[in-house]
Design a protein around this nucleic acid. Sequence first.
DNA 1: ACAAATCATGCTGTTTTTTGCAATAATATT
DNA 2: AATATTATTGCAAAAAACAGCATGATTTGT
Lengths: 249, 249
Amino acid sequence: MLKEERHQTILTHVELHNRVLLTDIAEILDVSIDTVRRDVKELDQESKLRKVHGGAISLGFTTNSARNNNIYALAQKTVIAEKAASLLKNGGVIFIDGGTTCLELVRIIPSDIQLTCFTLSLPVAMELNSKPNVEVIFIGGKIAKEAQMSIGASATDSLSEIKVDYSFIGTGYVDPAFGLTEFDWDIVQVKKAIIKASKKTVLLCISEKLNSQHRYKTCDIKAIDTMITELDSNADQLKLFRNYDVHLI
Amino acid sequence: MLKEERHQTILTHVELHNRVLLTDIAEILDVSIDTVRRDVKELDQESKLRKVHGGAISLGFTTNSARNNNIYALAQKTVIAEKAASLLKNGGVIFIDGGTTCLELVRIIPSDIQLTCFTLSLPVAMELNSKPNVEVIFIGGKIAKEAQMSIGASATDSLSEIKVDYSFIGTGYVDPAFGLTEFDWDIVQVKKAIIKASKKTVLLCISEKLNSQHRYKTCDIKAIDTMITELDSNADQLKLFRNYDVHLI
DNA sequence: ACAAATCATGCTGTTTTTTGCAATAATATT
DNA sequence: AATATTATTGCAAAAAACAGCATGATTTGT
């Protein structure tokens, strides 16, 4: 077997599976592991792939996921934010949750729309505050370091005293059967309070989070009035959610 | 499974859910917790995420310190901030006001000092939140657009329920005879409430503001326990303040 | 065509990396 | 303060990488 043939086979394999083990290639090509190692070394030097301990990975793999995936996610979140923004009505009184998706929504709020916004999230409050026609009311409390938002009894108490038209919330995990779940108990408590403080609740959620779950439960799917993903409203992935009387956008 | 693959999975998870537990990752990837710990350590060193006790959190969220670098009279304010910082005691419960001078104080708070900080100011809260050993409690309320801080009855009510060791406040104007004054009535109300909620009040004030006044009065000089300027404590400009039983630094 | 040189390949022993485990220290939580 | 959880460290086994060498094939120069 010629060297070039092997190189081609290796590359095809890497492109196809994103990664490959040296031992596997050695078996496939029926050559010694040393030869494979040398082949991969050359291909790495030619920048055709990236050699790692024990194997090789496609070039697109690392770039794609780390940064590109982030941009990709941002694109999805922007789509969600735009759909959500279409629900905003002039003069409305709403609640906006923390999280990157909600932050994206805040960013694209048109500056001419007049709103009263409650929030628990410091970044969301900062961003809202830059909108000239938005009145911002921050629900105070102990600030959760990572989430950068108020938690605790003080926050839930304050929430118990308000009733907004719409709340736009995010979630860590969502599953048709298990509903909305979170990693953090404190967060769940405030999210429950948010839902209670809202006439209607809108969930913003990228499709990647669909069908995932964690320890603590916020609510069932049926507690949500509208669920917004970046997907088309009749996408297959949303099939299971149609049983739960939730409006899909 | 290649290390790179694990890294990729970890990153995706962190980006998606903002935070993950090492134990969860270990289960997902079916490797030992030690391996996950080492992986996360590497990713942290590569600045792909931030390792925290028990897990990892996404960067994108924590590193959005929108630094406003063009602060007026930054040099003087830094001097003031350093003097003020020397008053901080480990385990103290304090209040920090809004304004650029107070923000400078927050920036130079040593990361090893353990504090409980109340504040009304969004930027101050954000900055405080980046200090690992500071517990931040935000006093909520309607956010004043310009000042980026809570005002109104809700804020003053909340303040009436606390008593801190020290409060560090700024002021718009100060005069030996007229005391502390402000341009804005709402701000005066909360400042009064802050002073009432403090055992001791420390005023941070650049010398430029000395001997100036405005419409609404916050308090007399004698309500202030300590006044910090960038000047030497026996400077001529402070002469008139010595009659008011205030500690000058 | 023949010898010399070059290259590719696999083998061997050694070094490095990775991984899991156990004991101990540090840190949260109650 | 006591307990549980998480980190750190050292260690050992396994896997992988590496360097050097021998063999055989291919190319090159004469």
